[in-house]
C-alpha cells in the first residue's frame, strides 16, 4: 500500500489519522480549486462589481435608497455566481468515490468564501464612493450583507437540491435563472406579511431582516440536507 493512505483507510480518527485527513483536505482543496468552474461565477461577479460602480462612475449624487437597490442588484449577481459553484461535469465519473460529496461541496464553498468576501467588500466600497453628503447618510452594511449572504446561500442550496434529486451535472444556469426569477417575483409582488426588499428607513426594515436571517438559516440547513450523495433522483436514466 502506498505511503500516506494507510492512515486514511480503516483507522479511527486518531491524532495521526486526523493529520492524514487534514492532508487529504489540503490536497483536495488544491484539486477542487482547479475543478471549480471559475469562468461563469467570475463573469457574474464582474458584472456585479460594474453595477456597484455605476453610482460612483456616472451618478455620484444618487441617494442612498437607490444605492441600496444597486447593491441588491450586485448581491443578486453574487447569487448567480454562487449558483455555478456546484457545477461538476465529472459528477457521474466520480459518483462512487470514497470522499463524501458534502466534503467536496464544503471545500468548494470554503474556497470561494474568501474571494466572495473580498468581492463584497469591494462592492460596498464602490457603492459608497461619490458625493460626500450622500455618503454621510451611510448604509446599513450589516443588513445588506445579510441579504447578499442569504441570496448566495439560497443559490447554493438550490444547486445542491438539483444535484441531489436529479442527474444534472451543471445546475448553475438553471438555478441562476430560478434565483433571478424568484427575486424579481418577490420584489414585484412584495407579498403582505413577507416583505423582504424594503426601502431604507421603512418601519418594516427590522422585521424584514429578521425574515432574511430566518431564510439564511433555512438555506444553510437546506444545503446541509441536500449535500449528501444523491439517494434517489426525479428522472431516470435510460438503460
Amino acid at each position: 500500500m502506498p505511503a500516506g493512505r494507510a492512515d486514511v483507510r480503516g483507522r479511527a480518527p486518531t491524532a495521526s489519522g486526523a493529520g492524514t485527513r487534514a492532508r487529504l483536505v489540503a490536497v483536495l482543496l488544491r484539486t477542487e480549486s482547479r475543478a471549480l468552474p471559475w469562468r461563469s461565477p467570475l463573469a457574474a461577479a464582474l458584472v456585479g462589481l460594474l453595477l456597484a460602480a455605476v453610482p460612483w462612475a456616472f451618478a455620484p449624487e444618487l441617494d442612498q435608497g437607490v444605492r441600496l437597490n444597486v447593491l441588491r442588484a450586485t448581491a443578486l449577481c453574487g447569487a448567480l455566481a454562487a449558483a455555478f459553484l456546484l457545477d461538476d461535469p465529472a459528477r457521474h465519473t466520480t459518483g462512487a468515490v470514497p470522499v463524501p460529496r458534502p466534503l467536496r461541496q464544503a471545500l468548494r464553498v470554503g474556497l470561494v468564501l474568501p474571494v466572495a468576501a473580498l468581492w463584497w467588500a469591494a462592492a460596498l466600497l464602490l457603492s459608497q464612493r461619490g458625493d460626500a453628503a450622500v455618503r454621510a447618510e451611510g448604509l446599513p452594511y450589516g443588513a445588506v450583507t445579510l441579504e447578499a449572504a442569504t441570496l448566495c446561500a439560497l443559490a447554493v442550496a438550490l444547486s445542491a437540491g438539483v444535484v441531489r434529486c436529479t442527474g444534472v451535472c451543471a445546475p448553475g444556469a438553471g438555478v441562476g435563472g430560478a434565483v433571478l426569477a424568484l427575486v424579481v417575483v418577490v420584489m414585484a409582488l412584495q407579498p403582505d406579511g413577507f416583505e423582504l426588499f424594503v426601502p431604507l428607513r421603512d418601519p418594516r426594515w427590522e422585521v424584514a431582516h429578521q425574515r432574511w436571517a430566518v431564510l439564511l438559516a433555512v438555506a444553510v440547513l437546506g444545503w446541509a440536507g441536500c449535500a449528501p450523495d444523491p439517494v434517489r433522483r426525479l428522472g431516470r436514466r435510460r438503460g
Binding site: P2, G4, L24, T31, R34, V99
Partner: peptide, 12 residues
Amino acid sequence: DYVAILREHTHR
C-alpha cells in the same frame, strides 16, 4: 490524478 485524490490517495 483528481480521481485518485478522491480515492484518498494523499501521498503525491
